[in-house]
Amino acid sequence: MNVKTESTSSPKRLARIAGVFYLLVALFGGFAEGFGDPKMYVAGNAAATAANVLADPGLVRMIVVAHLVNAVFFILTAMAFYILFQHVNKSVAMAMLICVALSAGITTLNAVFQFEGLQVATNSSYVDAFGAAGSNALVLLLLDIQHYGTLSAQVFFGLWLAPLGYLAYKSGLFPKALGVTLVAATVYYLVHLITAFLVPDFHKQIQPFILIVIIAEVWLLGYLLIVGVRNVKPGKNILAAATV
């Protein structure tokens, strides 16, 4: 009897752990990408970008740290999901984990460029060497790299939702509609990324479809924290690996 209770509680515990990690990803990522980056970076305007960085260097440091912490919790989220889903399809679960690792790696590298932008803006030797205009241009270049690098990381940030959606759908641990919505969010991320580089005008027109991503991720996060996972009928033995 104790074994049965333990086996059914372990997946819920794993799901809620993943939910807490995913919540931290949302908080740190939302602060860094939703608030911090736009506050510093002004596309095509070197003087304004450098002025923003100089106006609040402490905030820039917080943004950089938030990017790094976000990447750590993103990896931890994927590891929790891997343990939860490896019994469904180990290869697909591994693909999910690899996508997250690549996305986190790109994000952490981009944070270095952002920090270097701060170094250039606050170090007078760059002004002495390149002049004010040249120093500002270098700050903008570094934040340009960080901006488009973060955008490029969406390749893998989007792709990880496809195997996650498949695993959620096949496992029976989550509503099948949630799995389908996660895969749809992958499609949006990839279209969003491609249009940003190829057809910027059309890229702006599809922004409202980000609602798909919001629904998918909020639904997943809420389900993890509130429900955990569905109770699976006895005899389906799909939780064996999750209880190891």
Results as ranks from 00 to 15, higher is better:
residue 183 V to W: 04
residue 167 L to H: 08
residue 188 Y to N: 04
residue 112 V to W: 14
residue 181 T to F: 00
residue 136 N to A: 11
residue 199 V to P: 01
residue 142 L to R: 05
residue 139 V to Y: 10
residue 197 F to E: 05
residue 174 F to C: 00
residue 187 V to K: 10
residue 124 S to F: 07
residue 104 A to R: 04
residue 183 V to E: 06
residue 157 F to R: 12
residue 127 V to N: 08
residue 180 V to M: 00
residue 201 D to T: 15
residue 152 S to G: 13
residue 113 F to K: 03
residue 148 Y to L: 03
residue 175 P to S: 04
residue 205 Q to S: 11
residue 116 E to N: 09
residue 154 Q to P: 02
residue 155 V to F: 13
residue 107 T to W: 10
residue 215 I to A: 03
residue 202 F to V: 14
residue 202 F to L: 13
residue 167 L to F: 03
residue 202 F to G: 01
residue 162 A to E: 00
residue 159 L to P: 07
residue 114 Q to P: 03
residue 201 D to C: 01
residue 115 F to H: 10
residue 145 I to K: 08
residue 184 A to P: 06
residue 129 A to N: 08
residue 202 F to E: 01
residue 174 F to E: 00
residue 165 G to V: 00
residue 113 F to C: 02
residue 204 K to Y: 07
residue 197 F to L: 09
residue 135 S to V: 05
residue 193 L to Y: 13
residue 144 D to R: 10
residue 127 V to L: 04
residue 123 N to M: 02
residue 164 L to V: 11
residue 165 G to Y: 00
residue 128 D to E: 14
residue 123 N to R: 01
residue 185 A to T: 08
residue 199 V to G: 01
residue 184 A to V: 14
residue 146 Q to G: 11
residue 144 D to K: 09
residue 149 G to C: 05
residue 103 S to Y: 15
residue 197 F to I: 08
residue 141 L to H: 13
residue 217 E to W: 03
residue 160 W to M: 00
residue 152 S to C: 06
residue 173 L to W: 14
residue 193 L to P: 10
residue 125 S to T: 15
residue 133 A to P: 11
residue 199 V to I: 12
residue 181 T to S: 04
residue 158 G to N: 09
residue 103 S to V: 06
residue 207 Q to D: 10
residue 206 I to K: 11
residue 164 L to F: 14
residue 177 A to N: 10
residue 149 G to Y: 12
residue 207 Q to T: 14
residue 129 A to D: 09
residue 174 F to I: 00
residue 187 V to W: 11
residue 105 G to C: 05
residue 132 A to M: 09
residue 182 L to G: 01
residue 217 E to M: 02
residue 178 L to M: 14
residue 200 P to S: 06
residue 117 G to V: 12
residue 111 A to V: 01
residue 177 A to Y: 04
residue 117 G to A: 08
residue 106 I to K: 07
residue 123 N to Y: 05
residue 205 Q to C: 02
residue 195 T to M: 07
residue 127 V to G: 04
residue 191 V to D: 06
residue 155 V to Q: 02
residue 160 W to F: 08
residue 108 T to I: 12
residue 157 F to C: 02
residue 213 V to I: 14
residue 204 K to L: 05
residue 219 W to L: 03
residue 189 Y to L: 01
residue 215 I to C: 00
residue 164 L to D: 06
residue 120 V to F: 05
residue 159 L to M: 13
residue 148 Y to V: 04
residue 116 E to K: 10
